[in-house]
Amino acid sequence: MFLINCPFCGEREQSEFKAGGEAHIMRPKQPTELSDDEWAEYLFMRKNIKGIQFERWNHVHGCRKWFNMVRDTSNDQIKAVYKMGEKPPLK
Protein backbone atom coordinates (compact mmCIF):
# COMPACT_ATOMS: atom_id res chain seq x y z
CA MET A 1 0.00 0.00 0.00
CA PHE A 2 1.41 3.37 -1.02
CA LEU A 3 2.40 6.15 1.31
CA ILE A 4 1.22 9.29 -0.45
CA ASN A 5 2.57 12.70 0.34
CA CYS A 6 -0.55 14.86 0.11
CA PRO A 7 0.61 18.39 -0.87
CA PHE A 8 -1.74 19.79 1.77
CA CYS A 9 -1.54 17.29 4.65
CA GLY A 10 1.75 15.42 4.28
CA GLU A 11 2.38 11.68 4.23
CA ARG A 12 -0.72 9.54 4.59
CA GLU A 13 -1.73 5.97 3.77
CA GLN A 14 -3.22 5.09 0.40
CA SER A 15 -6.52 4.01 1.97
CA GLU A 16 -7.26 7.72 2.59
CA PHE A 17 -7.04 8.51 -1.12
CA LYS A 18 -8.98 7.93 -4.30
CA ALA A 19 -7.39 7.70 -7.73
CA GLY A 20 -8.97 9.90 -10.41
CA GLY A 21 -7.44 8.83 -13.70
CA GLU A 22 -5.13 10.62 -16.07
CA ALA A 23 -4.08 14.16 -15.21
CA HIS A 24 -3.80 17.28 -17.39
CA ILE A 25 -6.90 16.69 -19.47
CA MET A 26 -8.66 20.04 -19.69
CA ARG A 27 -12.39 20.16 -20.16
CA PRO A 28 -12.87 21.96 -23.50
CA LYS A 29 -13.97 25.55 -22.99
CA GLN A 30 -16.44 25.38 -25.88
CA PRO A 31 -17.74 21.84 -26.16
CA THR A 32 -20.43 22.86 -28.64
CA GLU A 33 -17.77 23.81 -31.18
CA LEU A 34 -16.30 20.32 -31.16
CA SER A 35 -16.98 17.54 -33.63
CA ASP A 36 -18.12 14.16 -32.34
CA ASP A 37 -14.60 12.84 -32.75
CA GLU A 38 -13.00 15.73 -30.90
CA TRP A 39 -15.47 15.42 -28.04
CA ALA A 40 -14.95 11.65 -27.90
CA GLU A 41 -11.19 12.26 -27.67
CA TYR A 42 -11.76 14.32 -24.52
CA LEU A 43 -14.46 12.08 -23.12
CA PHE A 44 -13.09 8.59 -23.57
CA MET A 45 -9.46 8.46 -24.58
CA ARG A 46 -7.09 7.84 -21.68
CA LYS A 47 -3.54 6.59 -21.62
CA ASN A 48 -2.53 3.46 -19.75
CA ILE A 49 1.22 3.64 -19.68
CA LYS A 50 3.71 1.16 -18.35
CA GLY A 51 6.15 3.57 -16.84
CA ILE A 52 5.85 7.21 -15.89
CA GLN A 53 2.22 8.29 -15.70
CA PHE A 54 0.61 11.57 -14.63
CA GLU A 55 -2.44 10.97 -12.48
CA ARG A 56 -5.11 12.80 -10.52
CA TRP A 57 -5.60 11.80 -6.89
CA ASN A 58 -8.03 13.00 -4.26
CA HIS A 59 -7.41 12.98 -0.51
CA VAL A 60 -11.00 11.91 -0.10
CA HIS A 61 -10.81 10.83 3.55
CA GLY A 62 -8.63 13.76 4.48
CA CYS A 63 -8.62 17.34 3.20
CA ARG A 64 -10.71 16.33 0.14
CA LYS A 65 -8.32 18.22 -2.13
CA TRP A 66 -7.47 17.03 -5.62
CA PHE A 67 -3.83 17.01 -6.64
CA ASN A 68 -1.58 15.48 -9.28
CA MET A 69 0.91 12.67 -8.94
CA VAL A 70 3.69 11.32 -11.12
CA ARG A 71 3.86 7.57 -10.68
CA ASP A 72 5.90 4.86 -12.31
CA THR A 73 3.25 2.22 -12.93
CA SER A 74 5.86 -0.49 -13.48
CA ASN A 75 7.06 -0.40 -9.88
CA ASP A 76 4.55 1.88 -8.15
CA GLN A 77 7.20 4.42 -7.19
CA ILE A 78 5.70 7.87 -6.71
CA LYS A 79 8.06 10.35 -8.32
CA ALA A 80 6.29 13.58 -7.37
CA VAL A 81 3.07 15.14 -6.13
CA TYR A 82 1.96 18.68 -6.94
CA LYS A 83 -1.08 20.90 -6.60
CA MET A 84 -3.73 21.37 -9.25
CA GLY A 85 -2.78 24.12 -11.65
CA GLU A 86 0.92 23.68 -11.02
CA LYS A 87 3.27 22.60 -13.78
CA PRO A 88 4.45 19.01 -13.60
CA PRO A 89 7.88 18.94 -11.93
CA LEU A 90 9.26 16.47 -14.46
CA LYS A 91 8.56 15.43 -18.00
Binding site: K18, G20, M26, R27, V60, R64, M84, G85
Partner: peptide
Amino acid sequence: LGKLEDYLQTEWP
Protein backbone atom coordinates in the same frame (compact mmCIF):
# COMPACT_ATOMS: atom_id res chain seq x y z
CA LEU B 1 -20.50 16.01 -3.42
CA GLY B 2 -17.25 14.48 -4.68
CA LYS B 3 -18.11 15.24 -8.27
CA LEU B 4 -19.06 18.85 -7.53
CA GLU B 5 -15.85 19.36 -5.56
CA ASP B 6 -13.85 17.86 -8.40
CA TYR B 7 -15.25 20.36 -10.93
CA LEU B 8 -14.83 23.28 -8.56
CA GLN B 9 -11.24 22.43 -7.73
CA THR B 10 -9.99 21.32 -11.11
CA GLU B 11 -12.09 22.79 -13.92
CA TRP B 12 -13.65 25.95 -12.49
CA PRO B 13 -11.37 27.13 -9.66
